[in-house]
């Protein structure tokens, strides 16, 4: 079975970490990932940029509206995610609109990825 493991933390605390502290945490996480990767069980790993870099496309109205900021509602649940490699936000939003047309309702948060490593592709 494939599992998605989602990581949560207080962003204002993590963003205020010093570079040294952040590097230390990433190094520790890296060691844990490497062990799991050697067992052939690890896929892509991504660290998202802060929510200030997020844009959200809402489909509850016609036409869909694009809002700055993260998805902040609690009445909907996270159902899935996509990873795309686009030259800019406009292009990523164009793809999101296509997705939204195929799957009406709900919302899509578009968040740039800061760190990305695909362990399954690397081995």
């Amino acid at each position: 079975m494939k599992y998605a493991i989602l990581c949560y933390h207080a962003e204002n605390v993590v963003c205020a970490w010093s570079k040294e502290h952040d590097d230390a945490v990433m190094a520790k996480l890296g060691a844990v990932q490497e062990r799991r990767a050697k067992m052939g069980q690890l896929g892509p790993v991504a660290r998202l940029m802060p929510t200030t870099a997020a844009t959200t496309l809402r489909r509850d109205n016609e036409p869909a509206v694009v809002l700055d900021g993260p998805f902040a509602e609690t009445k909907e649940q996270l159902l899935g995610f996509f990873v795309v490699d686009c030259p800019n936000l406009e292009e990523a939003l164009a793809f999101t609109r296509e997705l939204a047309e195929a799957n009406p309702g709900g919302a899509y948060e578009v968040r740039p990825i800061g760190y990305f490593h695909d362990w399954s592709a690397a081995t």
Binding site: M49, A53, G114, Y115
Partner: peptide, 18 residues
Amino acid sequence: WRKDLIAEGEALLDKAMR
């Protein structure tokens, strides 16, 4: 130079331009 900060800056600027 800090590539992480540059990438974040680009993402924010991208949003601003819209």
